[in-house]
Amino acid sequence: MMKHNFKKLLKAGWTNFRRNSYISVAVTGVMALVLMLLLGLISFQFLTARLVTSIQEKVDISTYFKIETPEDQILSVKKDLEKLPEVKSVAYVSRDQAQAEFKARHADNQLIQEALQQLENPFEATLNIRAQDPTKYEGIATFLENSKYRASMDKINYNENRAVIDKINSFASGLRLWGLIVTLVIAIIAMLITFNTIRLTIYNQKQEIEIMRLVGASNWHIRGPYLAEGAIYGFFAAVLSLVLFYPIVYLVSGKLGSFISDVDLFRYFLVNSWQIVLITLVVGILLGTLSSVIAIRKHLKI
């Protein structure tokens, strides 16, 4: 019975959709634009998240050990650090390594090469520490300050980098916050546009609804086909927006790579394609149906 009714409802909705083809196409078009806005927001969220991580990945702190510090002491500090939950990774750069890297970097500078020949290795060993999350650097810095080997450490560069780290953190959280606000505002606008469009089409049929009521139709009899029609608008809008959006992403994706390194938007849309298709369909159908529910409520007063 349930299934039978559902089929009947969809059929009635489809009949309405077909017979008002002019309006149906217009509403579907508007809703497809709204859903493309939504897909745009998904891309925007993805890109800002990527931007934030790629900036944050550049942040770390280093601690320099005095030249005479024995290596096993440094390694024990490394071990202690790695036990901390907020630490993501610790990289040890020995004095020899540091010198080799420096030499390699200045291979074409004769003067530096010669000067290094004359000296005993002037480089200090370092531990480069990367946190799980850039707000945790302060805690790691404090841990190092209180270490029993503090005396062997020449300096901890957190204090020097602090201003930069704080700035990056506030930029990242600002970007996240604004991304969220923009997303919310646009989502609300999108809902209002859909709602008003559907409201206008239903308003057009005010008289029909009035007649149905006079014939003794219950609210469900009147509402049902309109809800189905709303769902059908949503379904077609979702399909249309996806068909349009994927080629656009494909075209834009290449160009984006030059702004933000190692970001492949199209790949993201391909890898997550079934989720994106599902989200778009669900949002489209829900938006269409809910808008119809709200829009028709006004006309159903006895």
């Binding site: 009521r213 014939v215 003794g216 219950s218």
Partner: peptide, 11 residues
């Protein structure tokens, strides 16, 4: 109950 009531009428 108004819809049911209206079914008493033809208009």
């Amino acid at each position: 109950d108004v819809p049911y009531f209206r079914r008493k009428f033809g208009t």
